[in-house]
Write a protein that binds this DNA or RNA. Sequence first.
DNA 1: AAAATTGGCAACCGCATCGCA
DNA 2: TTGCGATGCGGTTGCCAATTT
Length: 256
Amino acid sequence: MGRQPCCDKVGLKRGPWNAEEDKKLMNFILNNGQNCWRLVPKLAGLLRCGKSCRLRWTNYLRPDLKRGALSEFEENKIIELHSRLGNRWSRIASQLPGRTDNEIKNHWNTRIKKKLKLLGLDPDTHKPNETGCTKIEEETHKEEEKIQSKSEASLSKVDDTASFSPSYGGLWESWGVEELMDPVLIEPEGLVVNQEESHGQSLEQGSSASNSCISSATLEEDMKRFWGEECFLGERMGSFYEFEEQQHCLDRFFFS
DNA sequence: AAAATTGGCAACCGCATCGCA
DNA sequence: TTGCGATGCGGTTGCCAATTT
């Protein structure tokens, strides 16, 4: 004898919500609060099951939800929390006001996971892959080929709107980045660096990168040496994921 | 320009857990 | 203590728009 379903699904609507349904649900919850979800559709005049109403409210209609893409800070926070909590999306979401577990889960699966893989890290464990950085190397080679073919065209293109994160700015600075800052050398996807801005940020915000030096062959080892073992799996990892363009630059530096 | 593929996201499903009688 | 309904949670699916071929 199995459990009874949460509702009788016969005659209930499924799939995307329309504006009219949203309005009904929103009005009902705002006037009556969240009590018994099973009764909500009936009382609100909706042909949905209570569970569907709850999801729609928590993931989309709640007035305290933030809209738009996740910020750098939020993304870094997610990576850090995931390294500690694993796939406990609701717990992670509770640390990020205005974001839902579903939103974070989707963002993780579609964006962050790929970035970690590109860096040769296992997204589940946050540790380096057993196979090393083959994927990142492949990507790097592809990028290099692209850059090679684009480099001539890029000579005439200058865009001073791009900037680096504080940590990257410090990184460049610690390496004596003038050479890397050459737009031809570091421009994988049309990115051209504004030197003044990136340097300014690193100095102003006191990046930990400013007094160290990275020089060896693998990203993992370099990062550990650079920031220390305990930081490697922690929040500082996040600052490496900030912009894909930066990642390409870093990859090229390490693996070329 | 059209077809195929990929990526992102909203919504659904089913199990786990909670809370109450 | 137990059983049951309600809710929470994480995995998965399906749709649609964007991109690539």
